[in-house]
Amino acid sequence: MKKAELRKEQINKLKEFANTKEKETEDSILLEKLMETDLIKNSQTIGVTASLPFEVDTSELIARLWEAGKKVYLAKARADQDHTLDFLRYTYMSKLVKSKFGVEEIADGDAEVNNELDLVIVPGLAFALDSHVRLGFGGGYYDRFLAKYNPKTVSLVSSPMQFVSSEWPVEKTDIPIQTIVTTNKIY
Rank of each mutant, 00 (worst) to 15 (best):
residue 178 Q to S: 12
residue 85 L to A: 05
residue 179 T to Y: 14
residue 2 K to M: 11
residue 139 G to T: 02
residue 127 F to H: 01
residue 180 I to P: 00
residue 39 L to D: 08
residue 171 E to W: 09
residue 136 G to K: 02
residue 107 A to Q: 13
residue 117 L to Q: 11
residue 47 G to Q: 09
residue 70 K to D: 12
residue 183 T to S: 13
residue 59 S to E: 08
residue 123 P to R: 09
residue 187 Y to R: 08
residue 110 D to E: 14
residue 137 F to T: 02
residue 141 Y to D: 03
residue 57 D to V: 00
residue 144 R to E: 07
residue 1 M to C: 01
residue 46 I to C: 08
residue 133 V to H: 14
residue 43 S to H: 12
residue 61 L to E: 07
residue 110 D to A: 12
residue 37 T to P: 07
residue 161 M to W: 06
residue 36 E to M: 13
residue 157 V to C: 15
residue 122 V to A: 08
residue 78 R to L: 15
residue 63 A to S: 15
residue 87 F to D: 09
residue 92 Y to M: 08
residue 143 D to R: 06
residue 162 Q to D: 01
residue 93 M to E: 14
residue 169 P to M: 10
residue 117 L to N: 11
residue 57 D to S: 13
residue 68 A to T: 05
residue 163 F to Q: 10
residue 157 V to M: 10
residue 68 A to F: 08
residue 140 G to T: 05
residue 117 L to Y: 08
residue 6 L to D: 01
residue 19 N to A: 01
residue 67 E to Q: 15
residue 185 K to A: 11
residue 32 E to C: 10
residue 155 S to I: 06
residue 176 P to S: 03
residue 145 F to H: 05
residue 107 A to R: 13
residue 32 E to N: 14
residue 102 G to S: 00
residue 101 F to C: 02
residue 105 E to F: 11
residue 169 P to A: 11
residue 23 K to R: 03
residue 170 V to G: 07
residue 26 E to F: 02
residue 130 D to I: 15
residue 134 R to H: 08
residue 187 Y to C: 04
residue 79 A to Q: 12
residue 126 A to V: 01
residue 94 S to W: 11
residue 115 N to L: 03
residue 86 D to S: 15
residue 126 A to M: 04
residue 112 E to D: 08
residue 132 H to V: 06
residue 3 K to A: 04
residue 111 A to Q: 06
residue 69 G to P: 09
residue 33 K to Q: 11
residue 18 A to Q: 02
residue 150 N to R: 14
residue 78 R to D: 10
residue 164 V to P: 07
residue 162 Q to Y: 01
residue 90 Y to A: 10
residue 126 A to W: 06
residue 47 G to L: 04
residue 88 L to R: 14
residue 79 A to F: 13
residue 62 I to Y: 04
residue 10 Q to F: 05
residue 41 K to D: 10
residue 186 I to R: 14
residue 119 L to S: 09
residue 114 N to D: 15
residue 168 W to P: 02
residue 118 D to L: 12
residue 85 L to V: 03
residue 50 A to I: 02
residue 182 T to D: 06
residue 96 L to T: 11
residue 43 S to F: 04
residue 71 K to L: 13
residue 74 L to C: 07
residue 77 A to N: 09
residue 81 Q to S: 11
residue 36 E to Y: 07
residue 128 A to P: 03
residue 47 G to W: 01
residue 149 Y to V: 06
residue 52 L to V: 00
residue 76 K to S: 12
residue 138 G to W: 09
residue 173 T to F: 12
